Simulated assay, not measured.
Amino acid sequence: MLIRDATAEDWAAVFPFFSAIVADGETYVYPDGLSSDEARALWHDGSHVVVAEVDGRVVGSAKAGPNRPGRGAHVATASFMVDPAARGAGVGRALGEHVLRWAAEQGFRAMQFNAVVESNTGAVHLWRSLGFRIVGTVPEAFDSRRHGLVGLHVMHRPLP
């Protein structure tokens, strides 16, 4: 698996799985029905964006940057999308490890995820296995298409 900086040309491969993940209604708070340009503006928002490739095919993407501006800019945050056809192949773990290394190299002191859907047990398990801990849960903050109102975990991990 190759993880590299995203290029403008990669969006054509990312948008289909971005749209499918948002439409599924289980992991992201993005609104349904985003156009390609609207989705690109959300994903390529000035953050550091990478893609994961397997055999020349883009199978995932991540974006990372400061969690907050100014006095909060020493804590990083990140978001991840993996093509549903590539789930279970270690793409999310590889992207997570890559982003954690990148954030440490950039001098961030910690990484914080602000909204990990509690019913997304695969993601919760992955982030815990990479050293994150749940520091709080906002009850009923996410309207899951399948589970109804569920909590959003705030997860945190110090960086070396």
Rank of each mutant, 00 (worst) to 15 (best):
L34R: 06
S35H: 05
D37F: 00
A39W: 01
L42C: 03
W43H: 06
S47L: 02
H48K: 05
V49M: 04
A52R: 02
A52N: 06
E53G: 08
V54E: 15
D55M: 10
G56L: 03
G56S: 02
R57T: 03
V58Q: 11
V58L: 10
V58F: 15
G60Q: 06
S61P: 00
S61L: 15
A64V: 00
G65V: 14
P66C: 12
P69E: 14
P69G: 11
A73C: 00
A73Y: 03
T77G: 10
S79R: 08
D83I: 03
D83P: 01
A85K: 11
A85L: 10
A86S: 02
A86V: 04
A86T: 05
R87Q: 12
R87V: 05
R87G: 02
G88P: 05
G90R: 07
G90E: 05
V91M: 08
V91I: 13
R93V: 01
A94E: 07
A94P: 02
G96W: 12
V99I: 14
R101C: 07
W102M: 05
A104I: 00
E105Q: 14
G107F: 07
F108K: 01
M111G: 04
M111Y: 07
Q112G: 01
N114H: 15
A115V: 05
A115W: 13
A115L: 01
V116I: 15
V117N: 08
V117R: 04
E118L: 12
S119H: 13
T121N: 01
G122W: 03
V124G: 03
H125D: 04
L126R: 02
W127Q: 03
R128H: 11
S129C: 00
L130H: 04
R133I: 09
V135N: 09
P139D: 14
P139V: 09
E140A: 10
F142W: 04
F142A: 09
G148I: 10
